[in-house]
């Protein structure tokens, strides 16, 4: 009997396995861990919820809260100030959310400055993401 070449199969498995692991390793989990490490405390979805709903000062008075645009329920779609729909922030409703670290940082950078007039801390960012991921 002719011996079946085993090498291609092994290489194929390694290739598929690596790609699958890369896709499933949880980019969102990595982002959460990064903020938790930076903050030095365990993240809290409950603190995130309170921060999300709080009325802030220091930023644009037209948008005093995250919920000004995202609505008080992150499972709902929000609207930008000019009326464009924002897909829900809840991961259960928009599964692609928070899987791109650069995009997450970009939007925290912009929106914290717009709403609070300052950067958000790693704990604030992590808590918010924990809240959105828990819904």
């Amino acid at each position: 009997m002719k011996r079946k070449p085993i090498l291609p199969l092994v290489l194929g498995l390694i290739c598929t396995g690596t790609l699958a692991a890369w896709a499933a390793s949880g980019p969102r989990q990595e982002i959460l861990s990064h903020y938790a490490n930076q903050a030095g405390v365990a993240l809290s979805a409950e603190r995130g919820r309170a921060f999300f709903l709080a009325s802030q000062t220091g930023g644009n008075p037209d948008t005093p809260s995250c919920s000004s645009c995202h609505t008080a329920n992150p499972k709902n779609a929000g609207r930008t100030r000019v009326g464009k729909v924002i897909e829900p922030m809840a991961v259960s409703r928009t599964p692609a959310r928070f899987t791109d670290a650069a995009k997450v940082e970009k939007w925290f950078g912009r929106n914290c400055n717009t709403v609070l007039g300052r950067e958000c801390s790693s704990q604030e960012k992590g808590d918010i993401l924990a809240y959105f991921s828990s819904l």
Partner: peptide
Amino acid sequence: LDQHFGEDASL
């Protein structure tokens, strides 16, 4: 873009 009609839209 950091002061884009009342919003920070920095890139």
